[in-house]
Design a binder for these strands. Structure first.
Lengths: 326, 326
DNA sequence: TTTGTTTTGTCAAACGTTTGACAATTATAA
DNA sequence: TTATAATTGTCAAACGTTTGACAAAACAAA
């Protein structure tokens, strides 16, 4: 691959001049500039960003740590992150951590080794200490990581409230919530709390089914089938849309009619769900705004590592009413 | 961040020795090794990979260029790529090119600048020349890029045949295919050809509806509705599963019963579809095998840039029969 | 012409590693 | 004890840039 020196020789100038052209530094005549640009084009030259970064420039790389991009929610989020960061001249290193703490740790090390400018993290199998040691600007999605790492999330509590209210409004009496197993610091806890609060206020009761996040869809489906077979719920809130799809699937098998026999509401409201399952009522997280906010904060931190940021940024959710709660 | 010298000082050895420990080069006593490792741990040291790569080591970075990770197919593929590459010690830079040639070009330049070890590309808005100029090991998914860039794909032709055969076996007489607009070099062309071949052989006719890839789901839905409203097809092959979902959606609206009035078969067979729409008959691409193959070839090329590879590697597809063709 | 300004060049240090040559020290075996 | 091998150290060059100091050259204006 061509180097600075190759360009310098070809353009008949010094290496310093070429560097000046690239960095637009010092004073340069139009003539030299065109000569240099011509040589760069001719040799298809790309400045070695390793060398540049070593010399102190930013790498323009951001690490993205998420549970996994196979899930439409995180898929859309990554797409959005990529899109917005690209426009600002950054590239992303994608890290699917799943729920593998060892992998997440390894990635954290690698991101340090690669001298990324910052990290957006939405998957957290590690303890606080490990995140504190990283020493890079980090923004967290939806989970507490450590002192001084801002959390951006949507209003999970209000989302839970909305879900309860819309099931009640649709006439449900016997409410059921299906959620991931209650881990500390999990955002789904707040969805549950919001839901709970509405019902408590009206002196109403509800049933709770917890299914571990890591369960396969088949397992989840089975547990849901068991639940539905009892036929003692007429309104279900799933704390994510995919689980709601499983409910629809199982309900069909058991010949339970939605919305006639059962009202259903999900959570997330990805483009995918809106396009391919518009019938599902859901609480939409404003993914695009969340991403904009995270990037905004991250770039601020990159610019000034000591800048003070809030510890929480909560964005509003929106109820999207479909046919499952009519 | 700690550097080699910091470690050397802390461990009371020379920088060279530390480097030797890290690279396991030269002869070293256990005692020194433990001292050095202790210092590394103490300071949470990560060798600066910029400096290492600059000095000639590989970057262990692979560029992934795809249309976009919001789509479940590519989502799963990226996840698989990430997973397999991680195990081999590589990290990925994710590039969603969409159908934006300018963006793809910019990414290609950036990947060169970052000195990635290789590229996996599955999105191709650019002409051959531009890919040839890159001068890095590249493997292509499912599309012709340029001389000497191997293509890994599933057996699209056979997939098309399978689709036709299973619609016929299910008793369909009036066949319809819905596919992305026919671009040259697109793999969906082969799916069409396989489909066609089966019907030709039996002297049967079929209708063709082309909808540009870039159309929004709403637009696609409208065109499908129009089509279904004519009610002159009783078997439809969609060259991707998402379009098949739209057909199901529109059919429901028009009160066309699947599979009673209409047989339906999709294409791709992602985990997502298998988990959340098991009723859909589809042709499954072996994503995991495709990825394994691509990575295998890519690493070969990285190891030996001049190694001879086939120009095509075709992996078998599998019919997954659901309720939509019974 | 002189003076001043703009452009370009030379040189060198720095970023954090790796690696080779070579020497010095220590440990082990005969 | 000496000979040999293993270990560690010093030194320096290299990777491809950026950036500053400084000087030389080119050009313009007075």
């Amino acid at each position: 691959m061509a180097t600075l020196d190759d360009i310098a020789k070809m353009a008949g100038v010094s290496a310093t001049t070429v560097s000046r052209v690239i960095n637009n530094y010092g004073s340069l005549s139009e003539k030299t500039k065109t000569k240099v640009f011509a040589a760069m084009k001719e040799l298809n030259y790309q400045p070695n960003s390793l060398a540049r970064s070593l010399k102190g420039k930013k790498t323009q790389l951001i690490g993205i740590i998420l549970p996994g991009v196979g899930n439409p929610f995180f898929g859309q989020m990554v797409q959005e992150i990529e899109d917005q960061l690209f426009k600002k001249g950054f590239r992303i290193i994608l890290c699917n951590a799943g729920n593998d703490a060892e992998k997440e740790r390894a990635y954290l090390r690698m991101l340090m080794a690669n001298r990324v400018d910052g990290i957006i993290a939405g998957s957290h199998n590690l303890n606080i200490e490990e995140y504190q040691k990283v020493g890079l600007p980090i923004i967290s999605f939806d989970r507490y990581l450590s002192e001084n790492i801002p959390i951006v999330s949507s209003d999970n509590y209000h989302g839970g409230q909305l879900a309860a209210l819309s099931l009640l409004a649709a006439g449900s009496k016997k409410l059921q919530i299906i959620t991931g197993a209650n881990r500390p610091n999990s955002p789904t806890n707040n969805r549950l709390s919001g839901f709970q609060e509405v019902l408590n206020r009206q002196n109403l009761d509800f049933k709770l089914l917890e299914i571990p996040f890591s369960s396969s869809p088949n397992i989840k489906g089975l547990k849901i089938k068991e639940l539905l077979a009892k036929r003692d719920a007429d309104g279900i809130f799933c704390t994510d849309d995919l689980t709601a799809l499983l409910v629809m699937q199982q309900a069909k098998e058991l010949d339970i009619k939605i919305p006639e026999d059962l009202k259903l509401i999900g959570y997330d409201g990805t483009n995918f769900i809106q396009n391919y399952h518009p019938e599902l009522t859901t609480i939409m997280q404003p993914i695009s705004d969340i991403v904009t906010m995270m990037i905004d904060l991250l770039l601020k931190r990159i610019d000034d590592p000591d800048c003070k940021l809030e510890s929480n940024y909560t964005l509003p959710v929106k109820l999207i009413t479909g046919a499952t709660t009519i």
